[in-house]
């Protein structure tokens, strides 16, 4: 191995993240190469300088945080395990929820939150405290958040209240269930990457559906999280014969910044013999920085009896 490729291992060596084989290889090299040894020493000095930057927690901040947290909990958040008695407001919301649930069993956007907008304006309520128009930040999972938009007494002594309701719901079903699939498709766009990984991971077995295929392609091309992109690529494996999928993958190959993703895309593209992929791989070899991906491309081109460069 060259100095260049071995130097790349130095940071991981410093953090003890190399395999024993890589470690042996590097140590042997450091013993012989003064330039690389100097590089290692520079990294050690850099790390020492960075160590000095570490923040000490300002005195009293920790206590202040603990007090603030406990006050927030005591002051408005009841524990999920200790269910409070239902007040009239909550009963009312539950009644509304039950009435509406028949119309809309599964709601989007998901992440398990549903919103029914009924009216406009006014104060904000939480499900546990009907009397206080507060902006309390939180309420336990499963509770109802409501924002009252309009309150209107009528001449008969009754009152008409318009509110938005946000409610966490739990649904379960198997993967054949269309509604479950719809929820997963929506969850593939959730902000939380862990939710996206899980959803795309489940959807990948359903790539035969057009909608799921599009969602997987969208995740491969646009998801900021490489873990999600890799999961989506796995789902596209059975579809490598699809021209549209191949086109999309060829584009991803040239723009994705993650070498693991690029490696997997190369694998998918070369799994099926196709002359159009030769140009894509030749193009990639020219600009690829990662030696692993480059080697894979070169090998694939060789296997296809194609030249490595376009020259």
């Amino acid at each position: 191995m060259t100095c260049d490729s071995l130097r790349k291992l130095i940071p991981l060596y410093y953090y003890g993240e190399l395999t024993p084989e890589e470690e042996d290889l590097l140590e042997e090299h450091l013993h012989e190469c003064a330039a690389c040894e100097r590089e290692r020493e520079r990294l050690r000095l850099l790390a020492a300088a960075l160590d000095r930057r570490q923040q000490e927690i300002p005195p009293l901040l920790l206590e202040d945080c603990r007090d603030g947290l406990m006050a927030a909990i005591a002051g408005g958040i009841t524990h999920p395990a200790a269910k409070p008695a239902k007040g009239p407001w909550k009963l009312f919301l539950e009644a509304m929820g039950a009435t509406l649930s028949g119309f809309q069993r599964y709601r989007q956007p998901v992440g398990a939150l549903a919103l029914i907008a009924i009216g406009f304006f006014a104060a904000r309520f939480t499900g546990t405290n009907p009397n206080a128009a507060t902006s309390q930040p939180a309420s336990p999972a499963g509770e109802v958040f409501a924002t009252v938009r309009n309150v209107e007494p009528d001449s008969a002594g009754r009152v008409r209240i318009a509110f938005d309701e946000t409610r966490r719901r739990v649904v379960s079903g198997n993967m054949e269930d269309q509604n479950i699939q719809k929820l997963l498709l929506a969850a593939a766009h959730e902000e939380n990457p862990a939710v996206r990984v899980e959803s795309v991971g489940l959807l990948r077995s359903r790539a035969d559906s057009g909608e799921v295929r599009d969602a997987l392609l969208n995740a491969v091309a646009h998801d900021p999280n490489a873990g999600v992109r890799l999961k989506a690529l796995e789902g596209l494996k059975p579809l490598t014969g699809d021209a549209e999928v191949r086109n999309a993958l060829a584009k991803v190959l040239l723009v994705d910044d993650n070498p693991a993703v690029r490696m997997q895309v190369v694998d998918l593209l070369v799994a099926r013999r196709d002359d159009s992929v030769v140009g894509v791989l030749q193009n990639l070899v020219q600009k690829e920085n990662n030696s692993g991906v480059r080697l894979k491309c070169e090998k694939a081109l060789k296997d296809m009896n194609a030249s490595i460069g376009t020259f």
Binding site: K8, L43, P193, A226, N258
Partner: peptide
Amino acid sequence: LGTSEEAAKNCLFRATQ
């Protein structure tokens, strides 16, 4: 971070570089 060890490794490498 909902990603692979390899991706974390790449991130660390880029950061130190």
